[in-house]
Simulated assay, not measured.
Amino acid sequence: MILRLLFIFSILSCSAISAQAQSDSTKTSSIDSVAVLNDTIPASEKVISDSTMVKKTTPTDTVVVNQTAISDSTVTDSLAVKPKVNIKTAFQIFIDYGKFLTIPTDFETKYEAGVAFQMKNKLVLVAHAGQAELHPGSAIENGEYTVKGQYFKGGINYLIPLDNTNTFYIGGRYAMSTYDENGSYEISSPLWPNITRSFERKDLSATWAEVVFGTEKKLKNPHWLIGGTFALRILIDHDTVEGDSDPVETFAIPGYGRAFDSTEPAINVYIKWQL
């Protein structure tokens, strides 16, 4: 009986040991599979991540390079397109055609022309000559006034070329005028007969300075230019009638304007021909 029990116990022990060994083997196999799976999955993810980075990074880098290339190309083109401004030595003759508009009027007649010598260093020597005959109706309320004379101006301009066609410039002038004036006026009285008096003064003179801002443009024919100026005239001196028995002061100065204004603005337009 005892032997039989020992035999059965030994059989059960062997079965238990065999089952335990099989269980350990199964656990080891599972661990190894998981390890292999873990090693495989990160590698795959890494490949996918690297591929994604390449796909994301490459277009960005390409765009930046292309933008840089386009920007460099644009700058190069703009520098290449900008023309070189050439200033040459030239002798010039100009006429103030705006003065011709005064010919049909009955209160003033003016003419003005001039010459200029342009140099490569952007300086231009300028000389003007003009003639004017003025009949301002507001000079004497109860009479007439006429002034007639010549004027001369000389100065210099400094050119600021915008391109080979358009030019801006600034300059200065010193001017003088010689003129004669005459007129008449009537003194009326309710008690006495009206008295008419006349006056005439010759060889009067005046001087002034001008600050000039101008612009001009070349026409299709490069020998012809058209332009305009704005000048601020500053009266320096002019003859007065102190000690004269006539109470009428000089009203206008040819080439300048009204004698009683210390400054006078002026606009001129001209056409120019150059060699």
Rank of each mutant, 00 (worst) to 15 (best):
N86G: 02
D61V: 10
I170E: 02
L6Q: 14
W273T: 07
N38G: 10
Q92H: 07
P161I: 11
T263S: 14
I95M: 11
T102I: 05
Y256R: 04
S33N: 10
V241C: 07
K202G: 00
G137K: 15
L125T: 09
S188G: 06
W192T: 14
D106H: 06
A43M: 06
F7Y: 12
I236T: 09
D163N: 15
I236E: 09
R197V: 07
A132T: 05
D239P: 09
K217D: 00
S29V: 10
D203G: 11
T62Q: 12
F251N: 15
A116K: 14
M53H: 03
P265W: 05
V241I: 15
N86V: 15
L219W: 04
D24S: 03
A266E: 14
V212W: 04
I31A: 11
N38M: 09
S198R: 02
S71V: 14
K148W: 03
F100Q: 02
S188C: 00
A113I: 07
P222T: 04
Q131C: 01
T76G: 04
N142C: 01
L123W: 15
V269N: 05
I41P: 00
G154D: 03
S71F: 14
Q274Y: 01
E45W: 09
V64K: 10
A259F: 13
E45Q: 12
A129I: 11
T28D: 09
V75N: 12
G114C: 02
T68V: 08
